[in-house]
């Protein structure tokens, strides 16, 4: 399994390299000038050109590209063009916020979604099933930012139960949780919709299988059938769905960070984009891509944990 993980990571490297190249080019195709962004409109063209030079933006593109790759190879994400702060430091600050948001989102999704999925599958074509299906379809039709706005209007503006915005004071866990609740709920509800649907259909597939019928025929009581036989086998597709939709969730987290004005990777990215901070932008993109690659790997590896029949070669 370890060898498999290593090989998967090695295979990811060419993909990552292509990603890096694309990001590097995309970022620089965009118009805009970080030197102008720093100096403001008052600065003369002369001063802007001088700063561009000092920032190394006048160097040929291939040279900047090699510098970028060389830096990454040494684990150096570079310094923000705008503030001069090491990007690694900015990311280190923002990442925990994004991680806690996405993980809580996934957690809420799993905790609510799997039981709901199993339940609706068991009540197939009855009222709870219709209700669950309609709600989950509505849930996955919700743009995350809109759900966030509605939750904010209700819980923060009208009921004043939670803060509207921000990430909470670092070092104050209670405050952090209060700030985390609404954004995580937003992502969690959307995740719940996805997971409910998939758990339901995975369960239905399994419930039709022969061995389940056999188990029932043997006279096992229903709970035993559901949990010992059916759910266990439905787990693989469910895990793969959690993996796949976690990527969707990461995308959604950007929007939610913007709506709730939470610090985080998404907000960092949009900020870097607005200021044309090439270095920060490309590094953040690399981190996102890495995120997704690791997530896919984890998903694959988890198959083995729930099903010993899966072999990694």
């Amino acid at each position: 399994m370890f060898a498999y993980a290593v090989r998967r990571i090695l295979i990811s490297i060419p993909i990552l390299l292509i990603v890096l190249t694309i990001v590097f080019i995309l970022v620089r195709v965009a118009p805009g000038d970080p030197a102008r962004a720093i100096l403001g409109d008052y600065a003369s063209q002369e001063a802007v050109d001088a700063l561009r030079k000092r920032m190394g933006l006048d160097k040929p593109l291939w040279e900047q590209y090699l510098e970028f790759l060389w830096g990454l190879a040494r684990g150096d994400l570079g310094r923000s063009l705008i503030s001069g702060v090491p990007v690694a430091k900015q990311v280190a600050y923002a990442l925990p916020y994004t991680l806690e948001l996405t993980f809580t989102g996934i957690l809420i999704g799993v905790i609510l979604g799997v039981p709901l999925g199993v339940y609706t599958a068991l009540k197939r074509n009855r009222l709870p099933d219709y209700l669950g299906r309609t709600l989950s379809l509505a849930g996955l039709s919700f743009p995350s930012f809109y759900l966030g706005i509605l939750l904010m209007l209700l819980f923060a503006v009208k009921l004043r139960l939670f803060p509207t915005m921000g990430g909470g004071t670092p070092g104050d866990p209670v405050d952090r949780l209060r700030h985390l609740f609404l954004p995580a709920l937003t992502l969690g509800l959307i995740m719940t919709a996805y997971i409910t649907r998939m758990s339901r259909s995975a369960m239905l597939n399994v419930l039709n299988e022969d061995y389940v019928r056999t188990a029932r025929a043997k006279g096992l009581h229903e709970a035993g059938v559901v949990f010992r036989h059916a759910l266990k086998n439905a787990l693989i597709p469910i895990i793969s769905v959690v993996g796949v939709y976690s990527v969707v969730l990461i995308g959604g987290s950007i929007m939610v960070e913007i709506v709730f004005s939470r610090p985080g990777l998404g907000k960092l990215m949009v900020g870097a984009m607005m200021q044309r901070d090439y270095i920060a932008l490309q590094s953040i993109m690399v981190i996102y891509a890495g995120f997704v690659i690791v997530l896919n790997l984890l998903t694959d590896l988890s198959y083995g944990l729930v099903d010993p029949r899966v072999r990694y070669r």
């Binding site: 118009p31 805009g32 000038d33 970080p34 063209q45 984009m273 607005m274 200021q275 044309r276």
Partner: peptide
Amino acid sequence: VVDHSSMHTLIR
């Protein structure tokens, strides 16, 4: 509509 620094570059 472009980002702020792009506008400053383009109008110049």
